[in-house]
Design a binder for these strands. Structure first.
Lengths: 177, 177
DNA sequence: TCCCTCTATGTAAGAACTGACATAGTTATA
DNA sequence: TATAACTATGTCAGTTCTTACATAGAGGGA
């Protein structure tokens, strides 16, 4: 039984073999929108996956002091990943700092709260614009079964989330005027 | 400088003085919708707040083996809380297990994915119904400045989130048929 | 030529969080 | 009368995550 981070790594490796460095890059860019990990976390987790036999690697020399290790998922890793995909997700505790601040906002100067929410609205609108651009770059709409569908569905979720969040910020600003 | 958990505790104590046990209960029920903490975490954090002079306590005997400690926020604690409220929230890394599963869903049996999303939709619809009931129990709509406004705004955010999430689950089910 | 960025892998200290253990009086229910 | 649930505080081991440190070659720009 692997941690969720382990499955995140396996999900990346199921698409193509990669070095730890490349996995870390994925955990910033496409996967990073819904699962984040630093390279120090990834190196540790890869060791665990390796001892568990869920991944294997092949050393190739590239730039850098050490050899580059190209990891790939094993049949055992793929089997565990497949099983995990449709298992119910573990409930994560809610921790939303902005809502917590809102809970305590009755103590603050309304003008400062207004500034806070105006800033947050700008953040969400910027992300919304970024996601819209990425949506354009998809071209067609991938259908289920295509590996690209995962990214497409995640993007749709992100769009919905940012819209909800921006709406809530606008409602807050409305309440403050 | 306190951790976010420290400010969550201060936000509870700013409304009224409470024992550690009562703070833990709040971190389940109203605050738990946006900030969670177990009692073991709270006890540790209260010690830090105490040494920092942000809270004080008064021992009273109640049921149980030890005396009950009633904590209250100090003027220093209130000052730090006020400052924190309108400071920009620290960006938390995104970690959404369901979206991660979606990213890897191309590997799974469509029928199983459909079951997963049907289950998740039911969860979000149940929460939506729960929030709607709580909305009714509010009676009037609190305005900014009223401590009750924080809970009201948080509830509105929760409603928006659950609607977005349920919509996305419905879209996914649509894609799978 | 110098410096910065990118590629590349790793360690380690510490913070944050989880889950189990430990103890014990009061109150309501079967 | 037994027992379960609730009140009440605390410790501790282990996991997860963050941040900084450490090393070093390749390639590009000032």
């Amino acid at each position: 039984m692997s941690s969720t981070l382990g499955f995140a790594i396996l999900a990346v490796l199921a698409r193509s073999e990669r070095s730890g460095y490349e996995i870390a890059a994925r955990m910033r860019q496409p996967v990073g929108y819904f699962w984040t990990a630093s390279h120090s976390q990834i190196h540790g987790e890869l060791q665990k996956l390796l001892t568990g036999g869920l991944v294997g690697f092949e050393a190739r020399h590239g730039p850098g002091p050490q050899d580059k290790k190209i990891y790939r998922i094993t049949p055992e890793g793929l089997a565990e990943l497949r099983e995990w995909v449709t298992a119910p997700p573990r409930a994560r505790p809610e921790r939303d700092e902005l809502v917590l601040k809102t809970y305590a906002s009755w103590l603050a100067d309304p003008a400062e709260v207004r500034r806070l929410f105006a800033e947050q609205l700008a953040v969400h609108e910027a992300r919304l614009a970024e996601y819209e651009r990425e949506k354009e770059s998809f071209g067609g709409e991938p259908v289920f079964g295509d590996p690209a569908f995962g990214g497409w569905a995640a993007l749709r979720c992100g769009l919905g989330y940012e819209r909800h969040r921006a709406d809530w910020c606008r409602w807050m600003l409305d309440q403050l005027s």
